[in-house]
C-alpha cells in the first residue's frame, strides 16, 4: 500500500509541474494588471513605469525562473495589486472555503444517503420516482437561484439565520454554524442528488449479489439485510463524492461565496484571475492541483480499505 502511494505521488508530480507551467505561460500571455493600475487617464509612459516597477517587463522565461526560485525557498511571492504576501491572503481565506466544503459534504451525505436508501428500499414504487425527480431537479436549478431563495425565506422572511458573512469557528462556534448553514444547504443541492443516485445504484447492485440472496434464503429478515448492506455501502458514495466533486465544489464555492458574501478562496481566485494578479493565481492553482492529486490518492486508498476485494 505504501509503495502504491509513493508510486502514485511520483506519477502525479509531473502533472502538478505541467499545470503550473501551463497556467503560468497562459496567464502571462493574457495581459497584465498594469493598465488597470494606471487608471482612467493612463499614458504609455505611466504604463511602462508601472511594468518596470512590478518587473512585468522582463521576458516571460525570466519571470518564470524568478517565481520558481521563490517557490524553492518556500515563498509564494506578493500580490501585484495589494502587495500582501500571497501566503497570508490564501491563509486568511482557507478557513471559510474549507468550512463551506465540509459542511456541504456533511449535509449532502446525510440527506443524500437517506434519500438513496429510501429510493432503493422502495425500488420502482412512487417514492423511488419522487426521489428520482428531486435528484434531477437538484441538478437542474442554478445554485445562485437556490441561494437567493434560501436567504429570502430563512433570513429575511423568517429571520432565523443571518443573511450573509462569516465568523471564524475559533471566535464563536455557534455563530459559525449559523453563518455556514444556509450556504451549505444551497451548495448541497447538486451533491445531494449525486449522492442519492450513487447510493441507490450501489445498494441495488449489492442487493442482487449472491451472498445477499444466500442470507435471505437462510432466513435473515429483509429489514436487517437491507440495513446491514446500506450501512456498509454508505461509505462508498461519500468517498466517491469527495473524489468526483472536487471541481464541482469549486464551481459552487465561487458562486455561493459571492451570494453569501463569504471571504473564501473562490472569490479570491475569481478576483485574481480578473485582475491578472499572477502570484495569487499561481499559488491557488498550485494548491488546488496538489489537493486534487492527494484527494484522488486518498479516495483510491479509501476504496481499498472499504472494499477488501480491491488490492493495490
Amino acid at each position: 500500500m505504501l509503495r502504491f502511494a509513493a508510486r502514485r505521488l511520483l506519477a502525479a508530480l509531473p502533472v502538478v509541474a505541467a499545470v503550473s507551467v501551463l497556467v503560468f505561460l497562459f496567464l502571462r500571455a493574457s495581459g497584465d494588471p498594469a493598465a488597470e493600475l494606471a487608471g482612467e487617464d493612463a499614458t504609455p509612459e505611466r504604463l511602462a513605469a508601472i511594468r518596470a516597477a512590478l518587473e512585468l517587463d522582463l521576458p516571460v522565461w525570466q519571470q518564470f525562473l524568478a517565481w520558481l526560485g521563490q517557490l524553492l525557498h518556500g515563498e509564494f511571492g506578493r500580490s501585484l495589486i495589494s502587495g500582501d504576501t500571497v501566503a497570508r491572503m490564501v491563509g486568511e481565506r482557507l478557513e471559510a472555503t474549507l468550512s463551506l466544503a465540509l459542511a456541504t459534504i456533511l449535509v449532502s451525505v446525510l440527506l443524500g444517503v437517506g434519500l438513496g436508501m429510501l429510493a432503493a428500499r422502495h425500488r420502482g414504487g412512487w417514492l423511488d420516482r419522487a426521489v428520482g425527480l428531486v435528484c434531477v431537479g437538484g441538478f437542474s436549478v442554478p445554485s445562485f437561484v437556490v441561494g437567493y431563495l434560501l436567504v429570502w425565506w430563512f433570513a429575511i422572511s423568517l429571520g432565523w439565520l443571518p443573511a450573509q458573512g462569516y465568523v471564524r469557528i475559533g471566535e464563536d462556534a455557534l455563530e459559525w454554524s449559523r453563518r455556514i448553514a444556509l450556504p451549505a444547504v444551497a451548495m448541497s443541492t447538486v451533491f445531494l442528488a449525486l449522492i442519492a443516485r450513487i447510493t441507490r445504484a450501489s445498494l441495488l447492485e449489492t442487493l442482487d449479489q449472491d451472498y445477499i440472496r444466500t442470507a435471505r434464503a437462510l432466513g435473515a429478515t429483509e429489514a436487517r439485510v437491507f440495513l446491514r448492506v446500506a450501512l456498509r455501502n454508505a461509505a462508498v458514495p461519500i468517498v466517491t463524492i469527495i473524489g468526483v466533486g472536487f471541481g464541482v465544489v469549486l464551481t459552487g464555492v465561487v458562486v455561493t461565496e459571492t451570494v453569501f458574501n463569504l471571504p473564501g478562496l473562490g472569490r479570491l481566485v475569481v478576483e485574481a484571475v480578473l485582475a491578472r494578479d499572477y502570484p495569487v493565481i499561481q499559488c491557488v492553482v498550485l494548491l488546488f492541483s496538489v489537493v486534487y492529486v492527494l484527494l484522488n490518492l486518498v479516495v483510491d486508498l479509501a476504496y481499498a480499505a472499504l472494499d477488501p476485494r480491491i488490492r493495490y
Partner: peptide, 22 residues
C-alpha cells in the same frame, strides 16, 4: 492521460474564467 489529469486538476470554473477573460 497525464495531460487529461492535468486539465482535471485545474478547477473547471477557473479555466473558463481565464479563457473568457483572454
Amino acid at each position: 492521460m497525464r495531460v487529461m489529469d492535468g486539465v482535471m486538476a485545474i478547477p473547471g470554473i477557473m479555466v473558463a474564467i481565464a479563457l473568457v477573460s483572454v
